[in-house]
């Protein structure tokens, strides 16, 4: 597969390490009353969609960017690649 890195252009997927669903960006608040339940769902449950999925790839053999790749799990077609940091900020993650 080829991933179009937003900063570096097209790169072979072999340069990257895969983590999983981009929902892993949304780490729960540990001080919430139901933190235990939230962390369990965050860590273990997956939509595992058959279709378009947003997922985390790490450019280990490159610039060490974490990327959010939107890829179809039925066809492997990639429709969007973003810097995970931008996505995280857009999701409201801060410090």
């Amino acid at each position: 597969m080829i991933i179009h890195h937003p900063l570096l252009g097209p790169r072979d997927a072999a340069e990257f390490v895969y983590l999983g669903d981009a929902s892993l960006i949304n780490r729960p608040d540990a001080s919430a009353d139901d933190a235990a339940e939230q962390f369990y769902e965050y860590q273990y449950l997956r939509d595992n969609v058959a279709g378009e999925m947003r997922e985390l790839w790490y450019h280990e053999q490159g610039d060490r960017s974490w990327l959010v790749v939107t890829r179809n799990t039925l066809t492997h077609e990639i429709s969007k690649v973003e810097l995970a940091r931008d996505v995280a900020r857009a999701n409201g993650r801060d410090r």
């Binding site: 999983g20 769902e41 273990y44 449950l45 997956r46 939509d47 595992n48 969609v49 058959a50």
Partner: peptide
Amino acid sequence: SSRVMSMAGMRLPIES
């Protein structure tokens, strides 16, 4: 598994 169990509204600790 995830596809079928989603018909029951369940999310699973599984990836394909």
